[in-house]
């Protein structure tokens, strides 16, 4: 049986990759994909901890977080479609009217 530490380390690596992607990508959709990657890293950590503690609460929490991610995607893609359907690209740099 693989120890919990390895799963947490993997979750940490996935989380960091997601964070780097969020900071370097310029397309709104790809930034959002990176947020999803980070959420999944958190879920993996929770599932691994759930096994370490022998507690199903954390697995139920992952179920809730999955729902939460789905709701966030509904709103997020709604905003992205509403905003970018009249613009040529989803590059966030085209949105730059607010300065100061």
């Amino acid at each position: 049986m693989v120890e919990t530490q390895y799963y947490i380390a993997l979750a940490a690596i996935l989380f960091s990759i997601g964070a780097v992607g969020f900071l370097t990508r310029r397309s709104a959709i790809q930034m959002f994909l990176c947020v999803e990657l980070m959420l999944n890293a958190a879920n993996l950590a929770l599932v691994a901890f759930s096994r370490a503690w022998g507690d199903l609460l954390a697995q139920s929490a992952v179920f809730i977080i999955l729902t939460l991610a789905a709701a966030e995607v509904a709103i997020g893609l709604g905003i992205i479609v509403a905003i970018f359907k009249k613009r040529p690209t989803t590059n966030v740099d085209v949105l730059s009217s607010l300065k100061g």
Binding site: A45, F49, A52
Partner: peptide, 23 residues
Amino acid sequence: MKYFLLGGFASAILIFGIALVFG
């Protein structure tokens, strides 16, 4: 758009923190 992307990023960080505190 700005609020959503940064807010989503912040929520992901918060959820990872919650996972670690649970752990």
